[in-house]
Design a protein around this nucleic acid. Sequence first.
DNA 1: ATCGTTGCAAACTCTTTGCAGGATT
DNA 2: AATCCTGCAAAGAGTTTGCAACGAT
Lengths: 137, 137
Amino acid sequence: MAAIVRNTRQRAAIRKVLEESGYPMLPEEILAAAQRLVQGLGIATVYRNINTLVEERWLTPVDLPGQSSRYELASKGHHHHFCCTNCGRIFDLPGCVEGGVRRMVPRGFHITHHDILLSGFCDTCRRAKQKSLSAHN
Amino acid sequence: MAAIVRNTRQRAAIRKVLEESGYPMLPEEILAAAQRLVQGLGIATVYRNINTLVEERWLTPVDLPGQSSRYELASKGHHHHFCCTNCGRIFDLPGCVEGGVRRMVPRGFHITHHDILLSGFCDTCRRAKQKSLSAHN
DNA sequence: ATCGTTGCAAACTCTTTGCAGGATT
DNA sequence: AATCCTGCAAAGAGTTTGCAACGAT
């Protein structure tokens, strides 16, 4: 059976940090933010709690190619992300192309899950780029 | 300037292995296969050549959540993948939902790249699952 | 008092790097 | 001959684990 989970200050801090974050966080980011709430917090505790919270389905991993997993609240439900290659910020996207992906697989395949990651320029960076382009011409 | 690239037996073996592979390969898989062509080949050489070949755009990384990067020929062009959660095999998918993803981003965002990963049961595993289900009922 | 949790340090895995010898041009 | 490349071993980065002390119930 699953062990009884205790409410430690460390775990509470880690959860608070993730609840108040507007984007998927890296373990190191969670550590830095949670250390402001519980000084002396160690990285091993962050990893242990992340893993527990993922198993409990309270957190969901968010993976960008070639980078460590980030984590966000599972309660946000199904959505995808946009990663700005200029500023590195990650944005939640509202829509989905559920129906479209069904048509991508061969006959007989059964899709249970799909991940979509879009990348490019967010509005702010796109404007900045256009501005610097026109300044140079 | 970029240094002149030499055609070593090791590099040739690594390229041959990737050219003849039907799926995106892990560094360890590339090592194992290439060691059959060049005995004594070391993992460091595999990593060094992978990195060079990616820079040369001869290889493209393929990333599955929480796993090391795999690599496939860049010449295969734009496509996506299906990962069977049962047998672990990775399949190339022909189609795309290019148009669909454009509608997912907020006004002002500019998409330069997109990744789609579908997962579930491939035809073989779907049939096996159905078979075992009916056998138990 | 029990026993889950923590911080620390060590261990582990994956990848990169320094270096001396070897191979390609 | 010049210099790029290789294998080995060591170093790094990210993550997990063992353990004794701590703390929530």
